[in-house]
Design a protein around this nucleic acid. Structure first.
Lengths: 216, 216
DNA sequence: GTCTATAATGAGATAGAC
DNA sequence: GTCTATCTCATTATAGAC
């Protein structure tokens, strides 16, 4: 699930960012101190400040990485329109992303306060995310995979957004799951799909639900 | 929406707790300092520490109030079983509670760290909440208001939990709504009901959806 | 109960040697 | 690039006068 930004040896900057991502995901950016970050990387606090003069800059650099990862997942767009879209893989990609960068979702308010410069970028990102889900839904309707009124589609959109965004936090807060595994991601996908099921046409059901052969 | 725990004049303790509730809801317990709390109450920091020796104790006292409020809402249970259950009012009560005490939901991890003694109580509370929703769903099924398999009911339960728990945070994070009004609560209720609609019988639809007369 | 100090800690951040 | 040493400041918390 986790990418290895710490790969390039000698790349202290990358190792710092990777440590930040892990620690921030665990406890949130405001509850992790620079001393803890330095300790996790195995360097001195002074060295940390050589690479990032302010905590704010770490958050900005992390957001850059997040955007990159996001673009990769978004690129694996459902070129749906009828031909066997891999909805489950697609959703799995999103859940993985949300998991890897969950502090940006969970602690968005704190991130905004700590790095005000990120505010517009955070907003733009979620606007784009919504637009993307909407495109997917409209595409499914047009491809005859789904049958729903415009109003139903909008409500479905919002519910899908909420369940997919908060699924990860739900696992932690409700079931104490700190270590998310593939099966948990699959469960989340199933939960989101369940929202769609009542509106799917037989053809839509075939394409999205598991257990049924992936008829072309 | 907000209860007036600050009512009894001379009751500094109550005023402190109410200030805490508001501030914690705004920024979370770890991002609000004792100085800010004292300032909000209009007292000195030293005085604050006369009433609560540790921040932890404020959280514990707040949780007591939260549990009280919760019991009140829970008492307004749906004695559903067929006769005109006021699902909307019931849901509205829950949303109001979640709104008034949203930091307990949103910052549950931080609360647990700051006041470890609350951990089992937080857990017990959400277990009970889940049991309550499950009872409501099973009740609806038995009353012929809903038609769904056991598996569908379980998924519905989880999705309803997620949407109702995170609706408030969704409003803030996605739409920047800091000041939740009656209409936003109503919207949330509508979103949750939308999850049920596909499984409702005609009689169930009559009882839950607005616009239709509340036939007895 | 409430205030005025003031102590104690720990976090973010910098200077300068190596 | 990395370290040691140090600074500043905010935050939690206490002592003791009123």
């Amino acid at each position: 699930m986790a990418k290895d930004a710490s790969a390039g040896r000698g790349n202290t900057r990358g190792r710092i960012l990777e440590a930040c991502r892990l620690l921030f995901n665990e406890r949130g950016p405001t509850d992790v101190t620079t001393a803890q970050i330095a300790a996790a990387v195995g360097i001195n606090e002074g060295n940390l400040y050589y690479h990032f003069q302010r905590k704010e800059q770490m958050l900005e650099a992390l957001f850059d990485l997040f955007e990159q990862a996001l673009r990769v997942v978004a690129a694996a767009d459902l070129a749906y329109a009828g031909d066997a879209p891999r909805y489950r893989d697609y959703l799995g990609g999103w859940f993985g992303l949300i998991w890897d960068w969950r502090f940006f979702y969970r602690d968005a308010g704190r991130v905004s306060r700590l790095a005000p410069g990120l505010r517009p970028r955070l907003k733009a990102l979620s606007d784009e995310g919504e637009a993307q889900i909407r495109r997917a839904l409209v595409g499914m309707r047009e491809a005859g995979l789904m049958q729903a009124t415009a109003e139903q589609t909008e409500r479905l959109l919002v519910n899908a957004w909420i369940v997919s965004t908060y699924w990860i936090d739900y696992l932690r807060s409700r079931h104490g799951i700190a270590d998310v595994k593939r099966e948990h991601i699959d469960q989340g996908i199933r939960q989101v799909l369940e929202l769609f099921v009542p509106y799917l046409t037989p053809r839509g059901l075939e394409l999205t639900l598991p257990g049924r052969p992936d008829a072309a």
